[in-house]
């Protein structure tokens, strides 16, 4: 089309964003639970242009053995991008970014997973980004939480994640790729909806205290929307049409 990046109108005067959404509207979210045969639990999510597969194994024996904890189970998490998931081919070896995201996702899930029930074991969460778009860590978390529930691993609550951010001086829900590149702030948030606890929050960008508060609340609204989609995915898998 020949449109230069600086020409993108992030928010027009009618409050419509560059991909046609309103300021508090998330992208299309679709989750399917139980998509893999070998994994104990699995989920596939499409969140905007994100296409992500999550698989869970465990609780199972820990290898290497010295990592095992005699009091409780451990959680391991790997967020990994396919070489073809982005514009330029990505080296398949894990980057520093992927390692950091793996860690924050693990720490966002850990408060929910009742690892104390399974001493000396590990729960492995493997997340594969088949196609990446803005907000892939939130989408990855959403799929991982559904995969954990699909595996029957005891959880205190679901974990639902969605980002909010600042674009054209306005707080908007669910930042897409263009808004991430050109916008002013991006804040991914993960939330346990029934326990009312935030288990992941990060921020890239500058916000005033008022904007900060609004941004958190906007993201939490997004988490609640995601939560409904997660519930639906698990209900479809386990209860089918007998509801």
């Amino acid at each position: 089309m020949g449109v230069k990046k600086t020409d993108i109108v992030l928010l027009d005067d009618k409050g419509i964003r560059c991909d046609g959404r309103k300021i508090n509207e998330p992208r299309r979210i679709m989750i399917k639970a139980g998509v893999l045969k070998n994994a104990n639990g699995s989920a596939y999510i499409e969140f905007g242009e994100n296409k992500i597969l999550a698989g869970v194994f465990g609780p199972r024996d820990v290898h290497p053995k010295h990592l095992a904890n005699t009091d409780r189970g451990i959680l391991r998490c790997r967020y990994h991008m396919q070489p073809f998931s982005v514009g330029e081919r990505k080296n398949p070896a894990p980057s520093r970014r992927e390692i950091e995201i793996s860690k924050v996702i693990k720490e966002a899930l850990e408060p929910a997973v009742m690892l104390e029930n399974f001493p000396r074991t590990v729960v492995d969460v493997f997340i594969e980004i088949l196609q990446a778009d803005g907000g892939s860590r939130c989408a990855a978390l959403d799929a991982a939480a559904v995969a954990l529930a699909d595996a029957g691993i005891p959880m205190r609550d679901m974990v639902s994640a969605c980002a909010a951010g600042k674009v054209a001086d306005t707080i908007v829900l669910d930042i897409n790729n263009e808004e991430d590149q050109e916008g002013q702030a991006d804040m991914p948030v993960a939330y346990m909806p029934n326990l009312g606890k935030v288990t992941l929050i990060q921020l890239d960008g500058v916000l005033s205290p008022q904007e900060y508060e609004k941004c958190v609340n906007t993201a939490l609204e997004g988490c609640k929307i995601v939560y409904e989609v997660q519930k639906k995915a698990l209900q479809e898998k386990f209860f089918g049409d007998s509801q």
């Binding site: 104990n40 639990g41 465990g58 609780p59 009742m114 529930a149 699909d150 595996a151 029957g152 691993i153 005891p154 959880m155 205190r156 609550d157 029934n194 326990l195 698990l234 386990f238």
Partner: peptide
């Protein structure tokens, strides 16, 4: 005072107790 399910399953309230019969898990 909330009683929350920890696994996918069928919840049962009987007498004064609440439990979930799981549909997945090890």
């Amino acid at each position: 005072d909330k009683i929350i399910a920890t696994t996918v399953g069928i919840s049962e309230i009987f007498d004064s107790g609440v439990r979930v019969i799981p549909l997945a898990g090890m």
